[in-house]
Design a protein around this nucleic acid. Structure first.
Length: 477
RNA sequence: GGCCAGGUGGCAGAGUGGUUAUGCAGAGGACUGCAAAUCCUUGGAUGCCGGUUCGAUUCCGACCCUGGCCUCCA
């Protein structure tokens, strides 16, 4: 059973074989910090976080590089609006985004690269492309990639340069020899942030930084290059052109792209301005819930963030933690270890089968519903032959790859309960008092009063559970 | 116009050349004073037309429809 990944370059699912046995070099395009991170950034970052974690689970030594684009037109424009220095502006959003990525439960990449920290590498890269005839300096001090110098252009996106409107027109970027050529280096307008280069003061074009950072941190060839699907053209196509023109070698072996985010069925984009900000989601939901929502989807498919998605996810996560918590008070010392181990083995096989199939986290979660159903059905019996504690420990371990369910169950449940009580404006004391009143009513077989009390609590989001040994309460999610 | 994805049960959404997706919702049952939770059981689907095949939702072709990219975007 081996890992298979869908390679966008070949449009097929291929067996994953890294360039160097045991080692994986992966690069995923990060964020242009021109403002708040949105849920699409969260989706992409979680997808590649989980890919990294699973590759490590399989025993690979993974070097994962992500980047921040911390200088570009939009950053300069947005900073100018508030009168901020673009460097400070970018710094502020990088710090904020770092924090949000932590809060989301993403592990830190091996290296967080930044465009402005690689200016020398970028200049070197561009100079080499000029020297080899793949790039040229315009009369205005801009440097462009000579697209027709790279015969394989379009092999990733299947774009046909003679049939598509590719590139920015010459009247928008004067000095270009061909509409298709794209900027490697942009000359600075007066007063604009700029670095010294052989072609005058300026700054890097968007695409070149990723090629330069890859070369700097990972080398000429990498195993996996990823990003959102919207980057396939032109960004990744241009990266291939730059990098392969420079080295003459295949740049990335596997190209992995995650789908895009839709909001209630509509495409989310900067131009439509219907973005859901990550900070707003984090203010309302915990990392487990958000990750569950994002990973209960095929990563390569678009994900629709409907109004129901996160509330539903919270419900599932809360229930799973509740099952874990319910095991604490049970004794499994008489369990059959052979049966228990067989069940654990079955679960591991299901997990790896799903993940090996192109990181199918959706199937992992579908399987997990079965695992929890199994635990519940055993719990419903008077006695069980399975050590459910041991089984749940394995489930928790496997969910570590998704970085979900890793908290102490009681802590998680209490946190959600506290938040919900606070939101609903009711205290634990109120609830206990109502339960006591209802107990009296129940003793007197005054069902009308008992039911009234229960209905009133339900209105406040509290559900009661009568058991032989008394009544308990829970939040009604 | 070019490139690419997809059309599945009430809704969302997978895999699969012949056998269960899964979740939510629904129905019946156990439990309960009645409920809730949980458990057990259960109904219901593969856009349209051809073809390949013993057999197709799954492969091939045509058609209809939806969405994305081709301009900054994860």
């Amino acid at each position: 059973m081996s890992l298979k990944v869908y390679n966008v370059l070949t449009r097929t699912k291929e067996e994953f074989v890294p360039l160097t046995p045991g080692i994986v070099k992966m690069y995923a395009c990060g964020i242009t910090v021109s403002g708040d991170a949105h849920i699409g950034h969260a989706y992409q970052s979680v997808v590649f976080d989980v890919i990294t974690r699973y590759l490590r689970y399989l025993g690979y030594d993974v070097k994962y590089v992500r980047n921040y684009t911390d200088v570009d037109d939009k950053i300069i424009n947005n900073a100018a609006k508030t009168g901020e220095n673009p460097i400070d502006f970018a710094e502020k959003y990088m710090a904020q985004t770092d924090k949000e990525m932590d809060d989301l439960g993403n592990a830190h990449p091996s290296i967080m690269a930044r465009a402005t920290q690689c200016i020398d590498d970028i200049i070197n890269f561009v100079q080499k492309l000029i020297d080899s005839g793949h790039a040229y300096v315009s009369e205005f001090g801009d440097v462009y990639f000579r697209l027709n110098s790279f015969a394989e252009y379009g092999k990733l996106s299947h774009i046909q340069t003679d049939k598509n409107d590719t590139g920015v027109r010459k009247d928008v970027e004067p000095g270009k020899l061909n509409d298709l050529d794209f900027a490697l280096w942009k000359s600075a307008k007066p007063g604009e942030i700029a670095w010294k280069s052989p072609w005058g003061m300026g700054r890097p074009g968007w695409h070149i930084e990723c090629s330069a950072m890859n070369l700097k941190y990972l080398g000429e060839q990498i195993d996996i290059h990823g990003g959102g699907r919207d980057l396939v053209f032109p960004h990744h196509e241009n990266e291939i052109a730059q990098s392969e023109a420079l080295t003459g070698k295949q740049f990335a072996k596997y190209w992995i792209h995650c789908g895009l985010v839709k909001v209630n069925g509509q495409k989310m984009s900067k131009s439509l301005n219907n973005g859901i900000l990550l900070k707003d989601v984090l203010a309302k939901y915990d990392a487990d819930t958000i990750r569950f929502a994002l990973l209960r989807n095929t990563y390569s498919a678009d994900i629709d963030i409907t109004d129901a998605l996160l509330p539903e996810s919270l419900k599932h996560v809360y229930k799973m933690y509740s099952v874990f918590a319910a095991l604490k008070n049970r004794d499994f010392s008489n369990a059959d270890s052979v049966k228990t181990d067989a069940k654990i083995q079955e679960i591991v096989v299901e997990f790896e089968k799903a993940m090996n199939d192109n990181f199918n986290t959706l199937e992992v979660i579908a399987s997990a519903f079965g695992w929890f159903n199994f635990i519940n059905s055993e719990l419903a019996k008077k006695t069980t032959e399975y050590d459910l504690q041991k089984i749940s420990a394995k489930i928790k371990e496997l969910f570590g790859v998704l970085n979900i369910l890793q908290q102490n169950p009681e802590d998680y449940i209490n946190k959600i309960k506290t938040n919900t009580l606070h939101q609903n404006g009711i205290t634990e004391q109120d609830i206990e008092k109502s339960i006591a009143e209802r107990a009296t009513a129940k003793q007197n077989k005054d069902w009308v009063t008992a039911d009234e009390i229960r209905a009133k609590l339900l209105k406040n989001g509290i559900v009661l559970k009568d058991a032989p040994d008394g009544t308990t309460w829970d939040i009604d999610l």
